[in-house]
Amino acid sequence: MCDSCGCPSPGTTSYSHDHDGHSHSHSHGHHHNATSGTRTVDVHASLFAANDALAKINRDHFEEMGAVALNLISSPGSGKTTLLEHTIEALKGEIRIGVIEGDIETERDADRIRAKGVPAIQLTTGGACHLDAAMIHRGFHQLQKEAGGDNIDLLFIENVGNLVCPATFDLGEHERVVLVSVPEGPDKPAKYPKAFTSSHTFLITKTDLLPYFDFPVAEATREALQLNHHLKVIDLCATKGGEGFESWLGYLRGLVAAMKAKRR
């Protein structure tokens, strides 16, 4: 059973238990100091471990459904939603897509995605600058309802626009994609290294604006690969198609095919 909502889930681990009438986490030791009357409790509970455990449950959920999940991380305005709109158009009838949108306020992004005819749900954090595994857990259940029993092959999680905190939280995604748009400048990998060291793929977006900005693609690519030479780098313009956008679609098709092969 799933810890947070009671849904059936494999590999669920319980990380709290009741003992002496009170609830607490993990193993621990008690030390009593008879003379001073104080009591010391060793807890040793990792506060990130709770997120990571739930992220693993999410990953199992996605795989049960046969969905490969991508977590999109970038600054606000780099073109995450626009990329998704064009991706949905391009893969219509070929790959079943679902989207979980994260923002501080408004349903706007989910509305834009629904207008493209795919199930989408909006998580509004009300101030928090990132999504965490618990939010995705609830969001995925809502998305399953919205999908009305249809399976999803490819789940996009669009994180809150921020290159800092989202990098710390595993949501249960299979691949993490970091985006930088041409107007933001090429120094983002050097300034926000964790978003790049923790990602699988680096997208340079809005390349149609290259004639108007000083953005040496080769330099940005080199800096990102210096941080993480496993990164796949794709530069593209989502609104005008072209070679880069086709590479992106090829990357997505590859991920979906690999997940299907894994389930056979």
Binding site: S25, T38, A45
Partner: peptide, 8 residues
């Protein structure tokens, strides 16, 4: 990590 809580 929450390591230790000391109570009285």
């Amino acid at each position: 990590v929450l390591r230790q809580v000391e109570m009285e």
